[in-house]
Nucleic acid binder design. Structure first.
Length: 476
RNA sequence: CGGGAUGUAGCCUAGCGGCUAAGGCGCCUGCUUUGGGAGCAGGAAACCGGAGGUUCGAUUCCUCUCAUCCCGACCA
């Protein structure tokens, strides 16, 4: 009777915490707002890292590492940037027992320290583009925290690129946005909307912010990644110039983009159910678990059979065997479900005698019996099928909970009764956006890309001609 | 930072102004078991979140404080 997961329907927040605790992904730390990422959670992050890192390298980026501590004066150089971040900063004022001449800020993001270095490294158009990524921890003092979704310290990746033209920087911004989109969809099996952020949701210091937004099972939106066109804002703040081919001095154009351990929160809330975690096979720390079932008189045969299978599958899959003799099969079944392992192979005397295997898939709970000899191929197909099913299931859910609306009353009703995404016209004014937020708690998540040709609608709030098609939702 | 809730063994909870602080889960030992969270026997483990106060006596009552969770405002 160990794992007790609160059902989603009863208390969604508690369900989320229970999943994390029972699956041993993370734990609370002694410091408020911080979390410990446990081995199972970190293994997930490592898989995310590995895949994304390859995608970054494939698009020409290199990794580097910039320091944690940033002179306070750097942060203050870009006006909008400091204004946006100052409430969240942690500042070091004492070092080695002595008061520091200048306080040091623990990075909330690294634009400033990176651009201070880019000033040194960039002189000519020949030095561009400069395409650097770093994997790092950052710190933002948060008033309200939630495991993985919002913690004071979190792990992320931040790309910082420098370009010779505005067009190129913009292209890079979009390119990386779509890298995120394909990562989310192809690996995490999370359908996302890619689009532009409104002015009020924009990154402090950017010209434009783009984001991918996912829908969680409670109908709320989660921003899963952002990509910013920084224009020349940081280049100007740090006076980073280059000589172009004509010999003229210009400020450099920039982009930055990031995803964080928040993705793990997105993963949990997109796929998991009341029995525990559900993981997409491509990112699961283990794709397969073998559970041997035996009595004393057939223990030998069953274990031999199971280990023979393990040895054979090991070269194809991330796999483990749960052959601990102290716990019962039922316990192990439940445990594999709590942990979200996509495929479980049950092997008892029946299977041994008939030279078969019993497979159980985590996403649907369905069980099927196959011949031993079919194992490698069937599991391959099954894993692919699970990966696809998770994506389609999430996509269906999003479709069912996305409403195209022109009536504000209906908008309010939906946000109250059964929140989801609402696609509506928006006139572009800050006032309408703010009013909607005040009255419904919903914000503009994105102005989706690729929908520019849709017939313009009237603003859902004021009724004036809509400038944009906007997606509204309550958000994490 | 406002509102609410909760702090008793690793976890969940019971308890009462007074005797050795009780139970379940988990853990350890042994035996027995194993097809959906097994059984029996034995065992270890708690300065009852912290400080102060009331009292002959406080885990229990009072005050303060700290921490965590939930809801709001602010944010990836």
């Amino acid at each position: 009777m160990a794992a007790k997961i609160t059902p989603r329907g009863k208390d969604y927040s508690q369900w989320y915490i229970d999943i994390i605790m029972e699956a041993k992904l993370a734990d609370y730390s002694p410091v408020k707002g911080c979390m410990v990422i446990r081995p199972r959670g970190y293994a997930l992050w490592e898989n995310i890292q590995q895949t994304l890192d390859k995608m970054f390298k494939d698009t020409g980026h290199s990794n580097a590492y910039f320091p944690l501590l940033i002179p306070e004066s750097f942060i203050k150089k870009e006006a909008e940037h400091i204004e946006g971040f100052s409430p969240e900063l942690a500042v070091v004022t004492v070092g080695g027992g002595e008061k520091l001449p200048e306080p040091l800020v623990i990075r909330p993001t690294s634009e400033t320290i990176i651009w201070s270095m880019y000033k040194k490294w960039i002189q000519s158009y020949r030095d561009l583009p400069l395409l650097i990524n770093q994997w790092a921890n950052v710190l933002r003092w948060e008033k309200r925290t939630r495991l993985f979704l919002r913690t004071t310290e979190f792990l992320w990746q931040e790309g910082h690129t420098a370009h010779a033209s505005q067009a190129e920087a913009h292209e890079e911004t979009l390119k990386m946005l779509f890298v995120y989109k394909s990562f989310a969809e192809d690996f995490m099996a999370i359908p996302v909307l890619a689009g532009l952020k409104s002015e009020s949701e924009k990154f402090a210091g950017a010209l434009q912010t783009y984001a991918i937004e996912a829908m969680m099972q409670d109908g709320k939106a989660l921003q899963a990644g952002t990509s910013h066109d920084l224009g020349q804002n940081f280049a100007k703040a740090f006076d980073v110039t280059f000589q172009d081919q004509a010999g003229a001095l210009q400020h450099v154009w920039a982009s930055s983009w990031g995803v964080s351990t928040r993705l793990i929160g997105a993963l949990i809330m997109t796929h998991s159910d009341d029995k525990g975690l559900i993981l997409p096979p491509k990112l699961a720390p283990e794709e397969v678990v073998i559970v041997p079932i035996f009595k004393n008189e057939n223990k030998q045969q069953v274990l031999e059979y199971a280990h023979r299978l393990l040895k054979q599958l090991k070269t194809h899959y991330r796999i483990k065997i749960d052959d601990d003799e102290a716990s019962s099969p039922g316990w192990k079944f439940a445990e594999s479900e709590v942990q979200g392992i996509p495929v479980r192979i049950e092997i008892g005397p029946r299977e041994v005698n008939e030279n078969k295997l019993q497979l159980a898939r985590r996403d649907t709970g369905e069980k099927l019996q196959i011949n031993y000899s079919e194992a490698v191929d069937t599991i391959k197909k099954l894993l692919e099928d699970i990966q696809n099913n998770l994506f389609h299931r999430a996509l269906m859910f999003r479709k069912e909970n996305t409403h195209e609306l022109t009536d504000y009353k209906e908008f309010k009703r939906i946000m109250e009764d059964k929140p989801g995404f609402v696609e509506s016209g928006w006139c572009g004014s800050l006032e309408c956006e703010a009013k909607i937020k005040e009255q419904t708690k919903a914000t503009i998540r994105v102005i989706p890309l690729g929908r520019e040709d849709d017939e313009p609608k009237k603003c859902i709030y004021c009724g004036n001609p809509g400038q944009y098609l906007a997606v509204f939702a309550k958000a994490y």
